[in-house]
Design a protein around this nucleic acid. Structure first.
Length: 182
DNA sequence: GGTGGTTTCGTGT
DNA sequence: ACACGAAACCACC
């Protein structure tokens, strides 16, 4: 049997994280905060305000100690989202079984490809779970690397739209355009 | 062609 | 037990 090689894989957080490194950066789509445990990237958000971004992060991992450090895992992830390299990345995140299933499904969508919510529903054999899928995608904790920007409503092309996005449809459109131009 | 009600499922409360 | 969504579908206008 052929082993599946993915650039990105997901490990579920199954106990409290004690140490988290975080840093701020600017990428082609805006400012981000990125954080890592000793296992993998645990948080990546587009941000407007650093202080608020940090307090949101701390709120999510109440028992952890935070260190303002840029580590190799973060650098690796930032390089990957700028498509400057193809090293393997581990994401270390919280989620229900259903959410992890959806997020792993999103990781299969190639760069530049757009799919709709029905496609995802059919892929996981739950064609009626459309709204649940929308919610799960919206709760994705790792911006860009889990490519929620590649999911658009079924009639979006006809409406010349890209649908909703946690960090604004304009940014979603910008990311889609950028990937198309690669 | 557009609009509003209905179906449907996972989650947080 | 109940209400809420990053959806889709259908009937109706």
């Amino acid at each position: 049997m052929e082993r599946e090689h993915s650039i990105i894989d997901i490990v579920r957080i199954d106990k409290n994280i004690f140490n988290i490194n975080y840093s701020y950066a600017t990428c082609q789509f805006g400012d981000i905060i990125i954080a890592s445990s000793d296992i993998g990237i645990c948080h990546l958000h587009f941000i407007d305000d650093k202080a608020k971004a940090l307090s949101d992060l701390k709120q999510k991992f109440l028992k952890a100690e935070f260190h303002h450090i840029t580590d190799a895992m973060q650098e690796n992830a930032i390089a990957l989202l700028q498509h400057q390299q193809q090293n393997h990345i581990t994401l270390h995140i919280k989620g229900t079984d259903f959410q992890l299933k959806i997020w792993r499904e999103l990781l299969k969508i190639p760069i530049g490809k757009l799919v709709n919510y029905s496609d995802i529903a059919n892929n996981i054999n739950q064609p009626q779970a459309l709204r649940a899928i929308g919610s799960a995608i919206g709760k994705n904790p790792i911006a860009y690397l889990i490519p929620c920007h590649r999911i658009i409503p079924k009639n979006a092309p006809k409406n010349n739209a890209v649908g909703n996005y946690m960090w604004g449809s304009e940014r979603k459109q910008a990311i889609i355009n950028w990937e198309k131009s690669l």
